[in-house]
Write a protein that binds this DNA or RNA. Structure first.
Length: 726
DNA sequence: ACATTGGACTCAGAAATTTTAAA
DNA sequence: ATTTAAAATTTCTGAGTCCAATG
């Protein structure tokens, strides 16, 4: 995998040159857009009703017995669960996979509840308990502010409360996601606080008092003044247009030129505020922390099917100026404030419905247990729906995650067949089949994303595999001593540049030449292909297979291979971790997960070097001392001097170890300069691979996964043994 | 049929915040 | 021991994928 993914230093720069070619098409969409919004709303209104019929019937079926819920204790066995289990077993024995199981791609073998050695289990439980005490939902105690944090830290709560192992239970079938759901609704953004009267806004040099509405939007801009994008034309244009909508007619007629607006006092004011916040006393900070904790306890959890679960994003996004990624045509537009009237609540009928703030109403309260979200609203920039959903540690997310990796493992079993197939298809008489086959080859070999088509002018110009254009590839008959090299250069998701030179097979190369013949740079490379055609084909090759499964599969299999290749049991723990990070890095490179090099990168690298130098010196000193101690011992030959030698020896050893650790750290950091490991670790790597590796090589899992990650991957940590194979 | 749109969910890197280590 | 800086973690929310309803 090494040669295939040679990356260029310049690739971080999301290259402005990429953005130009397709820009000109769409300058004025705004009018159209408004129309569309309207239409969307109406349609939504319609579908609301038609949906509810559905829901009602399913609701009745599933709702009934949940009255006995609210038994929050996790380990509690409840009848319902057992009943559930029995039913499922029946279903499953029904020969051929039960519908849902097939869909999920779970291996039945994976379902056998693991028998874990008891001591191990206890140890685990104990450890977790300690680590989790501070996030654990404390039962509604009214804590006096200030106390909460200090005592949470110190005395370990000794609730022996066992963690719920949802992975040892049966899953729902038929698209039911839960039977009982109760929550407190969202937390709204704090209301706007008008500026103090001494903070002034100037237009054309003259002070002007803004109406509250206009002032609020002005502060959004003022807060961003230090960002480069406030100087961009598109940003300023969009902002000004939306700002004017919030102005009184008087303001509207006066303020006609953004360039004459002076936000500097506002900007200064906010900077001062944030300084002041930093300078707060400990007590004040604690008070705020306690308040946040209170809100978390009240709104940050829900009850889903007898279990208290953490909610991911229970705070509604505050209003502000939209800043998409890359060259976004809508940057600078006003993201409006979300009110209760915009909010759809989803919960079960027999729950206590969340109350809207006094004097307000929800848009709707529905009871749809075929979806996982608690709250939704429609966002005004793209007209898309936003959701409040559960934390990755929740059952509902965890199951899905597990299922994703099972699907990838199924691909592993038949990937050879599929590869043989697409290689065969390179020769097909039909153009669409050849295109499909070459695209699939890219997806497999390069881990490209599927590449849905996007509405032009609504988003930044980015592409994935199926939406590649001729201009994104350059063919080299021969390059750097290699034949048939394809040079890729395009902006992918989040406008991250993908740059790669890949030697491909001759047949692929010839096909590409064919696809590119007589086309303009801005034409689609695969003009007979889109993601739905591709996925339909994949579906036929393997049940449940889609393009993104290849990414998961290739990422995970790469990690496993790399770990096997790079790690030896003889290594010490830091060396093992370096190897792990390198394996992780190979995956991140494959998936093109990049980051901007941290602002302080050079400096921190220097600091580390300084430390290393100091440590080297310290080592030299220690060695000298050891030598003289040895000499001394030789002369004196007494117990005391022998002991001294021993202790010096130990000291040298210790320092050597420290030095090595530092050096490893330096290597690791350097190699990681512009690579982001997090995304692959969190979303692409079957956690059981890492867990098994840790167990096999005696590396504590904490070295690989931090607390949050351990929560998310609790299922894997619990079930994977050292011999797990992806 | 098939293209389009809406909906729900995963995945993404930056920014903000908190923790830890160093001075 | 206190302050400060750096590292680690968490939060945030935008950007994809994919499916199914719709026209």
């Amino acid at each position: 995998m090494s040669g295939d993914h040679s990356h260029n230093d310049s690739q971080i720069d999301s290259g402005s040159r990429h953005n130009d070619s397709h820009k000109h098409k769409d300058k004025y969409k705004d009018k159209e857009h408004k129309h569309k919004d309207h239409k969307k709303d109406k349609e939504r209104e319609k579908s609301k009703y038609s949906n509810s019929e559905h829901r009602d019937s399913s609701d009745k079926k599933h709702r009934d017995k949940d009255k006995e819920r609210l038994k929050l204790k996790d380990g509690s066995s409840d009848k319902q669960k057992d009943k559930h289990k029995e039913k499922k077993k029946e279903e499953r024995s029904f020969d051929g996979k039960p519908k849902k199981e097939k869909e999920n791609g779970f291996e039945s073998a994976e379902f056998k509840p693991k028998k874990i050695k008891t001591e191990e289990r206890e140890k685990k439980a104990k450890k977790r308990e300690q680590e989790e005490e501070d996030i654990k939902p404390k039962k509604k105690t009214k804590v006096k502010k200030g106390e909460a944090v200090t005592d949470g830290k110190k005395k370990a709560k000794k609730e022996p409360e066992e963690k719920w192992k949802w992975w040892e239970e049966e899953r729902y079938t038929d698209g039911v996601k839960w039977k009982f759901l109760e929550h407190k609704g969202p937390v709204f953004a704090p209301p706007y606080e008008p500026l103090p009267s001494n903070v002034k806004f100037y237009y054309d040099g003259k002070h002007m008092k803004l109406s509250p509405g206009a002032e609020e939007v002005a502060t959004f801009f003022a807060k961003m003044l230090d960002h480069e994008y406030t100087t961009k034309d598109v940003f300023r244009k969009n902002f000004f247009k939306d700002w004017r909508k919030e102005m009184t007619s008087e303001e509207k007629s006066k303020l006609t030129d953004l360039n004459k607006c002076d936000f500097s006092e506002m900007s200064e004011y906010f900077k001062a505020q944030s300084e002041a916040r930093k300078a707060m006393t400990k007590e004040e900070k604690l008070k705020i922390k306690a308040e946040n904790e209170r809100i978390l306890q009240e709104y940050g959890f829900c009850v889903m099917d007898n279990h208290k679960e953490r909610i991911a994003n229970f705070r509604i996004e505050p209003p502000g100026l939209f800043r998409g990624r890359g060259d976004h045509p809508k940057m600078g537009m006003l993201k409006r404030r979300i009110r209760p009237e915009d909010i759809i609540i989803n919960c079960s009928k027999d729950s206590n419905h969340p109350k809207p703030p006094p004097g307000t109403k929800w848009k709707e309260v529905r009871h749809d247990n075929k979806v996982t979200w608690l709250v939704s609203w429609t966002e005004n920039i793209q007209g898309s729906i936003k959701y409040i959903m559960l934390n990755p540690s929740s059952r509902i997310k965890g199951e899905k995650d597990w299922q994703k990796y099972e699907m990838a493992r199924r691909l592993k079993k038949c990937v050879d067949r599929i590869r043989a197939q697409y290689r065969e298809d390179w020769k097909s008489k039909e153009m669409r089949i050849r295109q499909r086959a070459v695209a699939l080859y890219f997806i497999d070999k390069l881990a490209l994303r599927a590449g849905n088509e996007k509405e032009e002018g609504e988003t930044a110009d980015t592409v994935g595999c199926c939406s590649l254009r001729v201009e994104h590839l350059t063919l080299h008959q021969e390059m750097d001593g290699q034949e048939y090299v394809v040079e890729f250069d395009f902006l992918g998701k989040d406008s991250i540049r993908y740059y790669n030179k890949v030697p491909v097979e001759k047949r692929v190369f010839k096909n590409l030449q064919l696809f590119m013949e007589d086309k303009e740079p801005e034409d689609d490379l695969f003009d007979r292909l889109n993601t739905s055609i591709l996925n339909k084909h994949l579906q036929e090759l393997m049940d449940g297979l889609t393009a993104k499964v290849f990414r998961t599969y290739n990422a995970s299999i790469t990690l496993q291979q790399q770990l096997n290749e790079l790690t030896t049991s003889e290594d010490n723990v830091p060396a093992k971790i370096l190897s792990y990070n390198r394996a992780n890095r190979a995956v991140a490179v494959l998936c093109n997960h990049q980051r901007a090099p941290p602002k302080t990168f050079e400096k921190s690298m220097q600091n580390l070097q300084t430390k290393i130098d100091a440590k080297k010196e310290q080592l030299a000193d220690a060695k000298r001392e050891l030598k003289s101690a040895k000499a001394d011992a030789k002369v004196r030959r007494d117990e005391k001097s022998k002991k001294a030698v021993e202790s010096k020896k130990k000291a040298v050893q210790r320092i050597e170890e420290q030095l090595m650790k530092l050096e490893v750290q330096a290597t690791d950091r350097e190699e990681n300069k512009q690579i982001a490991l997090g995304t692959s670790k969190l979303n692409y790597l079957d956690p059981r691979i890492s867990v098994a590796w840790c167990k096999k090589l005696g590396v504590p899992i904490e070295k690989i996964y931090n607390k949050t990650q351990r929560e998310k991957f609790a299922w894997a940590i619990d079930m994977a043994e050292k011999d797990y194979e992806f």
